[in-house]
Structure formats: structure tokens, C-alpha cells
Design a protein around this nucleic acid. Structure first.
Length: 274
DNA sequence: ATGGGTACCTGTCTGC
DNA sequence: TGCAGACAGGTACCCA
């Protein structure tokens, strides 16, 4: 997916344009990960509030009508098209919400994404999905201490441990490899073995990588688009992700690719000793 | 509690 | 050219 920067880029593109919009129609395409959980007509007439983000989830408040929890899965993106430019729904458009400010559309070829109705963020099903999420990496609450405390006792390698999202949210497969490279930490190191100094370096690297990605509009490997249909640029700045065999930008040795938990990890064995 | 594996689904690229 | 197989940004869930 869309990792945290891509979701935040999406949120930033929606928040002002949708704030106060009134819902005119809701249409569903093929089934997504879970059913919507409410009749689409029940949302007609609702007024949209300010879009929020928690981890990689977006929350679209709908006033009295509750709200929608959205996830972009692996291949999803949201577009907001103004009235004159609306295009017909394609085969991968699985959710559409017409408002007086334009049409919001979820395009998601792989359909790992989700749009789920919930009364509030604090009740099920939203609360269930959000309940296990760790700290927000771009908030003041996140630092090396949080990381160190959260990883204590874990024998799982740091790469999948960071990816799991229960200590810190939003660090997906690209940014995980990038942050570990920036911090000089071996992705295979057992998570609980990271000392406070390494945790401090890693927390700083996570924050830095995510902020730079956000500034670049996120990463577009294939599917991701912002609400205007534009791709992100961060993938060009990636130091190790997707660069197996290429020279490490620091030591010029070959970048290595390994598989951890069925996901590719890219790293430099010389610059990431532990 | 931790952690490993599986499942969901489609499109694209690689190698034979 | 055709086709099988690998691979892709995520994460809930089941089981050991």
C-alpha cells in the first residue's frame, strides 16, 4: 500500500475539499475486504466532516450518519473529481460517493482495501481495527524510548517487528528498509536486542524517512495516486529499496535482497552491521 | 504472548 | 509468441 506518507498525502488532498460536503449518492462495485455494513442509501444527505488518519486508515466523519473507515490495501487510491471532469466507473472502482463538491472514488485493482461503516471511531468495527495500532510516528509521542519499550523481549527480527505496526504504525515495506538503512541497523537483528542508542537512531530514521516521503508526495511503484491522480516521487530517492545488486550509496558495495516473513528486505550488509 | 504461515485478489514482469 | 511462476505498497486471522 500506500504506506503512511501515501495515506497522509491522500488525506491532505481531501480534508479541505470534502469538509462540509453533502452526500448525494453512494455506489458500490465489487466486494472489498469487508462489507460496508450499512445500506448505501442511509448515508445520503449526510454531511462530511474533516477527514482524519490513524496509521494507514482514513476516517471520514459523516455527522449523525456515523462515518466511514477506509483502507487503501496494497493497490488502492482515492480520487476526488469535480463535476465537469467525472469519468465513468472503471472495472477497479469499487466505491463511489457523490457529493456537492465532487465524486470521491476508490480504485483498487487487488481489492485488499476496505470501506467500513462505523457509528464512531471508538465503536466496533472501527475500534476493533484501530485497537491494535501502535504510536503515530510523526507525533511528539514517538521516540527511541517508545521503540525500546515496545520491542523489549521480542525475538522476531527488527524488520518484520517494525512492519507489524503494533509498536509504531505506518512503516510499510519500502520505508522499513529505508529507515533501517538510514539507522545502520541489520534488519535481521532480533528486535529485543536493540539497545537504547540504536532505538533512538531508528526512531529518528523512521521520522526522517516518512517526512521526506511525505514531502515527495509519497512513493508510486505502480498504483498509488493522490486525489488529483498524480503519482509520488519518493521511490527515486530510495537508497536501498528495489535496488538489489546496485551500489550502496554509502559504501558502494552491492545492495542485498533477502526475504523476511514473505516480504522482500533490501539492505547493505556492510553499512548495517547491527 | 509470540510468531509463523495463510489468505484475500489482480496485474505485470521474467524466464523458459 | 505463449505460458507458468514469481512478485507486488497490507493486514486479519488461524494455529502451534
Amino acid at each position: 500500500m500506500p504506506e503512511l506518507p501515501e495515506v497522509e498525502v491522500t488525506r491532505l488532498g481531501l480534508v479541505d475539499r470534502l469538509d462540509g460536503a453533502s452526500v448525494r449518492a453512494v455506489r458500490l462495485g465489487k466486494p472489498l475486504r469487508w462489507p460496508l455494513g450499512i445500506a448505501p442509501q442511509a448515508l445520503v444527505g449526510a454531511r462530511v466532516g474533516r477527514v482524519q488518519r490513524r496509521g494507514k486508515y482514513l476516517w471520514l466523519p459523516l455527522g449523525e450518519a456515523g462515518g466511514l473507515l477506509l483502507h487503501l490495501g496494497m493497490s488502492g487510491s482515492l480520487r476526488l473529481e469535480a463535476a465537469p471532469t467525472v469519468t465513468p466507473a472503471g472495472p477497479h472502482d469499487h466505491f463511489e460517493m457523490d457529493t456537492d463538491r465532487g465524486r470521491l472514488r476508490l480504485t483498487d485493482p487487488r481489492r485488499f482495501g476496505a470501506v467500513v461503516w462505523s457509528r464512531t471511531m471508538a465503536c466496533a468495527p472501527a475500534a476493533t481495527l484501530l485497537g491494535r495500532l501502535g504510536v503515530e510516528p510523526l507525533s511528539a509521542d514517538f521516540d527511541g524510548g517508545v521503540l525500546h519499550a515496545g520491542l523489549r523481549g521480542r525475538r522476531m527480527p527488527i524488520k518484520p517487528a517494525l512492519l507489524a505496526g503494533d509498536v509504531v504504525v505506518g512503516v510499510g515495506n519500502i520505508y522499513c528498509s529505508e529507515a533501517l538503512f538510514e539507522a545502520g541497523i541489520d534488519p535481521r537483528l532480533p528486535a529485543g536486542r536493540l539497545d537504547p542508542a540504536r532505538c533512538e537512531r531508528l526512531a529518528a530514521a523512521v521520522t526522517d524517512v516518512l517526512q521526506r516521503a511525505l514531502a515527495a508526495g509519497g512513493s508510486t511503484l505502480r498504483d498509488f495516486r493522490d486525489v488529483h491522480g498524480l503519482g509520488g516521487e519518493f521511490q527515486r530517492q530510495a537508497r536501498v529499496y528495489g535496488r538489489e545488486g546496485e551500489p550502496c550509496p554509502r559504501c558502494a558495495g552491492p545492495v542485498q535482497r533477502i526475504v523476511q516473513g514473505q516480504r522482500a528486505t533490501y539492505f547493505c550488509p556492510r553499512c548495517q552491521p547491527g
